[in-house]
C-alpha cells in the first residue's frame, strides 16, 4: 500500500458547510505519498475525526473515493481489511478506545499478538518505561487517567508492522514533557519501518519534522 489517494472526498453530513469553503483535503484531489510525515491542522468541528475515520474505513458516508494504492477502500472485503489493519495501517484514536476490562498490558498485548507476535514482553516493557506508565501497566484500563490511557493507546498502535500510522490528536491528554517522550518513540518506530504518518491536531507543533502540513 504505497500511497493514500483522496479523490473529491466530502463527508455527506458536512457537505453543506464544506462545499462553501476551500480545504486542502476536502473536495479536492490529493495523493499522500508513502513515507510522508503529514500534519493536518484543523479547528474543532472541521471534520478532523471524520477524516481519520474515513481514512481508516470506519465510515462510508462520504462522496468521492479513497484509494489505498490503486484500490478503492469501499471494495476491500472484510478479511482483506483486517489484514491491512494488522500489517499496513495502524491508528491512535482521539477517543483512545481501550478495552476497559483488560489491563493496560493486556490491551497492548492483544494488538501485539494479533497478526503474529511483533515485540517481546521485554521490548514492550522498555517502551512502557520510556512513556512512564510502568506503575499502571497491570491496572485495568477503566481505572486509568486519560493521560495514561493515551500513552497505552500510543504503545498499542506501535505493536504491528505498518506503512502508515494515523494519529488523531495523539497528545491531547499529555503534558509537553510526556508528549515529547511519546513523539520520540513514534519517530523512532516510524523511521524503523520507513513508514509515513498522518497526524491531525488543532494547533501548530514541533513534535515531528513534517514533510507536509495541510489545512483541513
Amino acid at each position: 500500500m504505497p500511497s493514500i489517494t483522496l479523490h473529491q472526498v466530502v463527508p455527506i453530513p458536512l457537505s453543506d458547510r464544506l462545499e462553501k469553503r476551500t480545504s486542502q483535503i476536502w473536495n479536492t484531489d490529493i495523493v499522500l505519498k508513502q513515507g510522508e510525515w503529514i500534519k493536518i491542522k484543523a479547528s474543532s468541528g472541521s471534520g478532523k475525526t471524520t477524516l481519520v475515520h474515513i481514512l481508516y474505513k470506519l465510515r462510508n458516508d462520504y462522496k468521492g473515493n479513497v484509494l489505498y494504492g490503486n484500490q478503492n477502500i469501499q471494495a476491500i472485503p472484510a478479511e482483506a481489511l483486517a489484514s491491512i489493519r494488522q500489517k499496513s495501517i495502524s491508528i491512535i484514536f482521539q477517543d483512545l478506545r481501550l478495552f476497559p476490562q483488560l489491563t493496560a498490558f493486556e490491551n497492548i498485548q492483544l494488538k501485539n499478538i494479533l497478526g503474529g507476535v511483533m515485540y517481546t514482553e521485554k521490548e514492550i516493557m522498555l517502551m512502557v518505561e520510556r512513556l512512564q506508565i510502568t506503575h499502571i501497566i497491570q491496572h485495568k484500563a477503566q481505572t486509568l487517567s486519560y493521560g495514561e490511557q493515551q500513552r497505552v493507546a500510543i504503545i498499542r498502535a506501535l505493536m504491528q508492522p505498518f506503512e502508515w500510522l494515523i494519529m488523531d490528536e495523539p497528545f491531547s491528554h499529555l503534558d509537553i514533557n510526556n508528549a515529547t517522550l511519546a513523539a520520540q518513540l513514534i519517530t523512532e518506530e516510524c523511521t524503523k519501518r520507513n513508514a509515513g504518518f498522518i497526524l491531525t491536531d488543532l494547533d501548530n507543533d514541533t513534535h515531528f519534522v513534517y514533510t507536509q502540513q495541510l489545512n483541513l
Partner: peptide
Amino acid sequence: SEIELLITLGVSPKQ
C-alpha cells in the same frame, strides 16, 4: 462494542 473495537483493531472476522 467489544467486537466492533476488535474488528477496528484488525481482528479478522475469521479469527
